[in-house]
Design a protein around this nucleic acid. Structure first.
Lengths: 203, 203
DNA sequence: TTGCAAAGCAGACATTTGTCTGCTAAATTG
DNA sequence: CAATTTAGCAGACAAATGTCTGCTTTGCAA
């Protein structure tokens, strides 16, 4: 039986595993076997075992489709892209997201969502209309951080500033005056942890 | 036995499935059962079946961990984050990436990579130093598109412009004069399809 | 209240899939 | 070349996991 030179098949298998796992579909040992034309399941498994040995894969013994990628390549998640967010309707909006955006797993979980920016008020911070902001939900924030806050009935993106005990929402654009919200009615939805701009159609 | 109101459990299960599948680890029916405290496997399976019925999940019958997300939520991939790119060394740089960045699958494949932006030359386009640009490799581009081009020995991000048959690389910052590169030595590495800014530490 | 449909339960069963043992053949090494 | 390691093969076995049937409970509305 002819045979591929040392190590070459192995890295091709790693590539195969990376693709499949990243696509959310870890393969079975037998799928690896077939994909590479082995005639025995064990041949595939030996390669997988070697890749685990080399630290390039992680194995959960006994579990079906139990091979994973070691961090940081492996972990990622999706965050719901909400349209406009009305006061109090945040949880409703999460029920019917406009779409989903991939993020690193550390930014995942229920605590995050994404919004599309409307208007030019934050150009000074490099945030343009149409950009997506990824927001970690939290009820407070530090001075200087960019937050999503409810002002009136609509969510807006602004820089939070504390001026002598007084909360100010600053735009990053001289054309937009700062907002001095009533502390009672101010509600911080979360902190902007990422800004994203797609330059081609499709979100 | 107390029970959650109609439909609520279902959307929580969908959320659970989304997270697990996106993380590269589709759960088993029994894992869903346990996660939601059902006492019978069938209870979980009934929910999953209903979600498939509603088109919110896709099922591969008989396969272990056989639930998938329908496009476009499901498909995603990773793109290598290159540091600085020297002339001609692009393929070398890809061999040793600084890290990986998650993107939607449509932006995946070998044809893409990410770069970190240095300098203020593109502020006018909302691209700040430290931002990541996701680049689709292509040897040409249209006028007005933002490209990564090799000028001298270093890669730079600029707007490509055609002025009467003459190629110009324009910065988006009045402090930076346009570049009129020698057509012989100009090399376009690709087109910027996305801009990304992380506002917290960790890339 | 009564009836119906949705939700849940219990357990058996079938299939998929991981794992093991022993073997053969090709590469590598001294 | 002989010894050793690596790659691959074959088949059996066991565990994980999907699927099925029949039944009970709950929510809802006529």
């Amino acid at each position: 039986m002819s045979r591929t030179p040392r190590g070459e098949t192995r890295s091709r298998i790693l590539e195969f595993m990376r693709r499949r796992i990243a696509a959310g579909e870890p393969p079975t040992v037998r799928e690896v076997q077939q994909a590479f034309g082995f005639r025995a399941v064990e041949s595939a498994r030996a390669h997988l075992r070697a890749l685990v040995q080399a630290g390039q894969l992680v194995h959960l013994p006994g579990r079906a489709r139990g091979y994973r990628l070691p961090e940081p390549v492996g972990a990622l998640s999706w965050v719901p892209l909400l349209g406009r967010v009305q006061a109090g309707a945040l949880s409703d909006a999460i029920e019917a997201p406009e779409g989903y955006v991939p993020v690193r797993a550390q930014d995942a979980g229920k605590a995050h969502f994404a919004l599309r920016v409307v208007g030019w008020s934050m150009v000074g911070a490099g945030i343009l209309p149409g950009d997506l902001v990824i927001v970690r939900r939290q009820p407070t924030a530090h001075s200087g951080e960019i937050v999503v806050a409810l002002v009136g009935d609509e969510a807006t993106v602004k820089t939070l500033r504390l001026r002598g005990g007084q909360v100010v929402l600053e735009a990053q654009n001289p054309d937009f005056p700062p907002i001095f919200p009533d502390p009672e009615s101010l509600r911080i939805l979360g902190k902007v942890v990422e800004v994203r701009r797609y330059l081609e159609e499709g979100s």
